[in-house]
């Protein structure tokens, strides 16, 4: 395997009395596409949000290239530049048009000249097939278009790793495909990706590794062939059976 980008060791997180993550260990290598599956409430999204510190974990370590993100002396803002995130509810900036959504962070955070940032934004918008919507108001776009803009926006920061938090859960079944296609292309280009998803077909086809989470712990992980074809854990089998029925 290649160089390790992200290492999570013994991660704990609780909201009040509710323990959401109960000791998570996970390693992500460069160029790997990891899909995290599991029932709602199993802690998948929380794990993802802990990785770039949108939620602060209570214990454990998150090493990004060997640097512990949980260490309070680490400049988390600069590290987040290398960790792109795509949300379930898109979260495009409502007060900006499409291209400004893409250029804001590069200009404000990375201090890239506006022309350069715009050129990069155009390139990334083209890659997601939205070059015709550069000056559109995000609120006029469809869900699938919004999510593709959100992906382009994240790519404009040239991240090393992309986190996807159920990127297609808020979309109509018919337009899920257009977002998954973009993600598939991204995976083929060698982007390191961690995808929390309920799209089992996507996980089966695109990922290198599937992680099954249940009740705050990782119950099983392995190649998609193994997880989908021959899961060891009874709980995994039960969960997948319910999905394959649908």
């Amino acid at each position: 395997m290649e160089e390790t980008v992200l290492t999570i060791e013994g991660l704990y997180k609780s909201f009040g009395d509710l323990e959401v993550l109960k000791g998570i260990d996970l390693q992500i290598s460069k160029g790997e596409v990891v899909c995290i599956i599991g029932a709602s409430g199993s802690g998948k999204s929380t794990l993802l949000r802990c990785i770039n510190l949108l939620e602060e974990a209570d214990g454990g370590r998150i090493l990004f290239h060997g640097q512990d993100l949980m260490d309070t002396s680490v400049d988390i803002d600069s590290l987040r530049q290398s960790i792109g995130m795509v949300f379930q509810s898109f979260n495009l900036f409502n007060n900006k048009n499409v291209i400004d959504n893409c250029t804001m962070a590069p200009v404000v955070v990375k201090k890239i000249p506006r022309e350069e940032a715009e050129a990069a934004a155009v390139r990334n918008l083209k890659a997601v097939g939205l070059e015709d919507f550069m000056y559109a108001d995000p609120n006029t776009l469809s869900g699938g278009q919004k999510q593709r803009v959100a992906i382009a926006r994240a790519l404009c920061m040239e991240p090393e790793i992309m986190l996807f938090d159920e990127p297609t859960s808020a979309l109509d079944p018919e337009i899920v495909g257009e977002v998954l296609d973009v993600m598939k292309k991204l995976a083929e280009e060698g982007m390191t990706m961690v995808v929390v998803t309920h799209e089992m077909a996507f996980a089966k086809e695109v990922s290198n590794r599937v992680v099954f989470m249940d009740d705050g712990v990782i119950l099983e992980q392995g190649s998609p062939e193994k997880i989908f074809g021959n899961p060891e854990n009874a709980r995994t089998r039960e969960f997948l059976a319910r999905y394959l029925e649908d």
């Binding site: 770039n52 949108l54 600069s78 987040r80 949300f87 509810s89 979260n91 495009l92 959100a150 926006r153």
Partner: peptide, 11 residues
């Protein structure tokens, strides 16, 4: 989510 998206981009 608006603020979270901004923070996730490094702002």
């Amino acid at each position: 989510g608006q603020a979270e998206a901004a923070r996730s981009l490094g702002m």
